[in-house]
Design a protein around this nucleic acid. Structure first.
Length: 204
DNA sequence: CAAGAGATCATCT
DNA sequence: GATGATCTCTTGA
């Protein structure tokens, strides 16, 4: 299976978000963070694969739902940087969120990974709580260690591989994003994408 | 079932 | 000082 290169993320955020559906998020046992993750807990020393089944796009400086709409700050500066870089932020006092930066440098955008489906047999029995953005980071052991690191290399123990299938438009459900009621007209943008019928999707 | 509250703290004003 | 790209538990119909 091929690892997705940096160029994959250097494109229209809404398109990249949909192209990520069906791709595989792969994590090495233990990763490089200090948090115990699913692969580490399993102790088989094999990689763990998760199919990406739900994402949200945060697109550009005007998107009122995006951190970037407030201008560049220390936290969101990753979003203004190069594509293919991991953006992890901490929220609600307890949750980490996993994003992948898209588009060229200086255009602030990212894709939030909202739900994944466990694929590797060695994680199916423990990774049954991956249907939500904060739940999956906990299972995968993703924390701020990964913030600012590239996801187009195996070097840091977290990467994305191409999917087995390319989803047709009719297989992708487009819906409004979750938890962004404050975002004015941007709250109605259907920038959440998920695989129709997949039971790991966080909200139907 | 649906709705509401509490947890808990980094980040921004 | 206020709030959140969430989750889990409790309450009540």
């Amino acid at each position: 299976m091929r690892i997705l290169r940096k160029s994959f993320y250097n494109g229209n955020t809404l398109q990249v978000a949909q192209d990520l559906l069906g791709c595989f998020l792969v994590v090495l046992p233990g990763g490089k963070s200090r948090t115990t993750n699913a692969a580490h807990a399993n102790s088989t020393k094999r990689v763990c694969k998760f199919k990406i089944v739900e994402v949200e796009a945060y697109n550009g400086p005007n998107d009122l739902a995006s951190h970037a709409s407030q201008g560049r700050t220390e936290r969101n500066s990753i979003m203004f940087g190069k594509p293919g870089i991991i953006y992890v932020y901490f929220t609600y006092g307890m949750h980490y969120m996993l994003n992948i930066v898209t588009e060229a440098k200086d255009y602030p955008a990212a894709v939030l990974i909202r739900a994944v489906e466990p694929i590797s047999h060695n994680v199916e029995r423990i990774a049954h709580n991956t249907n939500g953005p904060a739940k999956l980071t906990k299972i995968l052991g993703i924390d701020k260690f990964f913030n600012g690191l590239p996801i187009y290399t195996k070097k840091y123990g977290l990467w994305v591989e191409g999917g087995d299938e390319k989803f047709k438009n009719s297989q992708i459900k487009k819906a409004t994003r979750i938890g962004v009621d404050y975002a004015g007209k941007y709250k109605d943008k259907k920038w959440r994408f998920y695989i129709k019928g997949n039971i790991f999707v966080s909200k139907k």
